[in-house]
Computed example of a mutant assay.
Amino acid sequence: MTDHDAQFARMGASASYLRRETVQALSRRSDLWGLWLTLHVWGVIIAAWVMAAVWTHPLTLLLAILLVGSRQHGMAILMHDAAHGVLFKTRVLNEFVGKWLLAAPYGGDLIAYRHYHLKHHRYTQSDDDPDLPLSAKFPVTRASLRRKFIRDLTGQTFFRLRMAGLKAAPEPGMEAFQKTSPVPTLVTNAVLFAGLAATGHWWIYPVLWLLPLATWFMAVLRNRNIAEHALTTTDGNVLTQARTTKAGWLARVFLAPYWVNYHVEHHAYMYVPCWQLPHLHSAMAAQHGEMEIQPSYRQVLKLAATG
């Protein structure tokens, strides 16, 4: 067990909402699942590119932007599992895929994220939580929330975060975008551009990689941040200091892929892989009715915006 594995295990060891045997079964890691999820996230992106290249039309381009942006978010979700050491059973695969195939292409950094995310789990919804600035501001007015999403969809948030990432000391709430080195991102994006250019479709890189990353990805990420912790408790109760949001198939395609909507369950047992979270939810919901659960992302946004 690595040092970070041991830290996560100690942090989650006090959770006792389910029988130990149940948790052990749900905590099983799988190289096959890790491979499938990695292939799936890239497969959807490539399929969206092919669709737009073969049937180039404003509507197919828009759909491709939404699909690619949602899967860039999916890459961040799977990288999150890799940061917990649970995407793959084999540690070398977990570290390599998490760093090079998931984090680096969209500008993430597995090592920096792991350090920051460990603090988030240890100090959730407390003054020392690095994510607190993302949730403490809510509720806001509807006009304020609208302006935030407009900034996301017009690329303003993306460029602000990229500039903030160049600073030695991150701004509050922006530690997730810090890097130990820009090299992996530069290398993977150079490979992406070269590969697309070699097929005669260089335009896909700016239009269907950078544009989704600068727009839809940022809006989806904000939606997720609001849903996970805005207006939840600050009393240390794992069942109410995070939120699980129910997601239909459209939400799973465009907003919440790879079971990221099960956030209470993740905070209760952070070493359970994402593909096991629906089963963990069923087990916990049967015994703990006080869990913070909302019926949709629309309802969460209604709670987050007033007046």
Results as ranks from 00 to 15, higher is better:
residue 193 F to S: 04
residue 211 L to A: 00
residue 161 L to D: 03
residue 162 R to C: 15
residue 149 F to C: 07
residue 161 L to R: 00
residue 160 R to Q: 13
residue 152 D to W: 02
residue 195 G to R: 07
residue 183 V to Q: 00
residue 181 S to P: 00
residue 188 T to V: 11
residue 165 G to H: 12
residue 211 L to H: 04
residue 223 N to R: 14
residue 189 N to E: 15
residue 199 T to C: 11
residue 166 L to C: 07
residue 218 M to V: 11
residue 218 M to P: 07
residue 159 F to G: 08
residue 209 W to E: 00
residue 164 A to F: 02
residue 207 V to K: 14
residue 156 Q to T: 05
residue 204 I to W: 02
residue 227 A to Q: 10
residue 138 F to W: 15
residue 163 M to Q: 15
residue 175 E to P: 02
residue 136 A to H: 08
residue 161 L to S: 01
residue 189 N to M: 15
residue 155 G to P: 13
residue 186 L to V: 12
residue 165 G to S: 11
residue 175 E to S: 08
residue 175 E to G: 13
residue 182 P to E: 02
residue 173 G to C: 01
residue 181 S to Q: 05
residue 217 F to P: 02
residue 226 I to V: 14
residue 175 E to Q: 10
residue 190 A to M: 13
residue 140 V to N: 05
residue 200 G to S: 04
residue 227 A to P: 15
residue 169 A to R: 05
residue 212 P to F: 04
residue 152 D to P: 00
residue 174 M to D: 08
residue 165 G to D: 14
residue 173 G to Q: 01
residue 187 V to G: 01
residue 155 G to V: 07
residue 183 V to K: 10
residue 196 L to D: 15
residue 139 P to Q: 12
residue 180 T to K: 06
residue 195 G to P: 11
residue 224 R to A: 13
residue 176 A to S: 09
residue 203 W to D: 12
residue 169 A to D: 09
residue 147 R to Y: 00
residue 167 K to C: 06
residue 214 A to D: 09
residue 175 E to C: 03
residue 215 T to V: 03
residue 143 A to N: 09
residue 168 A to V: 05
residue 148 K to V: 15
residue 144 S to E: 11
residue 150 I to C: 14
residue 139 P to M: 12
residue 185 T to I: 02
residue 229 H to D: 07
residue 189 N to T: 09
residue 171 E to F: 03
residue 210 L to E: 10
residue 176 A to V: 09
residue 196 L to K: 04
residue 191 V to W: 10
residue 223 N to C: 06
residue 217 F to C: 05
residue 160 R to A: 07
residue 226 I to R: 10
residue 178 Q to G: 00
residue 163 M to W: 02
residue 228 E to D: 11
residue 193 F to W: 10
residue 187 V to I: 15
residue 178 Q to N: 04
residue 195 G to E: 15
residue 147 R to S: 14
residue 191 V to H: 12
residue 210 L to S: 09
residue 181 S to T: 10
residue 163 M to P: 00
residue 150 I to M: 13
residue 159 F to C: 15
residue 136 A to V: 02
residue 196 L to M: 13
residue 163 M to S: 15
residue 194 A to T: 12
residue 206 P to H: 06
